[in-house]
Deep mutational scan, measured.
Amino acid sequence: MATKAVCVLKGDGPVQGIINFEQKESNGPVKVWGSIKGLTEGLHGFHVHEFGDNTAGCTSAGPHFNPLSRKHGGPKDEERHVGDLGNVTADKDGVADVSIEDSVISLSGDHCIIGRTLVVHEKADDLGKGGNEESTKTGNAGSRLACGVIGIAQ
């Protein structure tokens, strides 16, 4: 089992970053940390998408990683996509320092995120509470600013 993974985020604009993942036990939580720069100040949706395909930019990554066919939600919700990591918060300089621990994603097994795409979005994720159909699919997080395929790390 891989215990570490990394993702280099890039987009068409100024947004870029490096996100690290570490899972010490196969059924334990995954620590997610790193930094994203070039964002507007505020909240930005942060999700693992189904495919590791960036051939047409971030759009070819498909929908959120959702092997259990659930509705979109927040990272602490029972009803959520596996890939729903909530929001990252950018400061006035456009930098989001990421520090998350998640017990639904994994670096092995059915919820493995390796080979899938991590995406940072234009807007805040409403965590499935926006009151419309799009909220239950995407959290109304808007366009995909930057993305990268999650790969095994040393």
Rank of each mutant, 00 (worst) to 15 (best):
A5V: 00
V6A: 11
C7P: 00
L9T: 00
G11P: 04
D12F: 11
G13S: 13
P14K: 10
V15M: 01
Q23S: 06
S26L: 07
S26T: 13
P29V: 03
V30C: 11
V32I: 15
K37C: 10
G38L: 04
G38V: 03
L39W: 03
L39M: 08
L39T: 02
T40Q: 08
T40R: 12
T40G: 12
E41F: 00
G42M: 01
G42W: 01
L43S: 04
L43K: 09
F46T: 02
F46H: 02
H49N: 07
F51S: 15
N54A: 08
T55C: 11
T55K: 14
A56D: 07
A56P: 06
G57H: 11
T59G: 05
T59W: 13
A61H: 11
A61L: 13
G62P: 01
H64Q: 07
N66I: 06
L68G: 09
L68R: 14
H72S: 00
K76N: 14
H81C: 05
V82W: 13
D84S: 10
D84L: 05
L85R: 01
G86P: 00
V88R: 00
V88K: 01
T89V: 06
A90S: 12
A90G: 07
K92N: 11
D93S: 13
G94E: 05
D97M: 14
D97L: 10
S99F: 07
E101K: 11
V104Q: 05
I105W: 03
I105C: 02
S106A: 09
S106E: 04
L107Q: 01
G109D: 06
D110A: 09
C112F: 07
I113V: 13
I113E: 02
I113T: 05
I114M: 06
I114P: 03
A124K: 09
A124T: 10
A124D: 09
A124I: 12
D125F: 10
K129A: 08
G131S: 11
T136D: 11
T136H: 11
G139T: 06
N140V: 05
N140M: 07
S143Y: 09
R144F: 15
V149T: 10
G151W: 10
G151V: 12
G151T: 15
I152T: 13
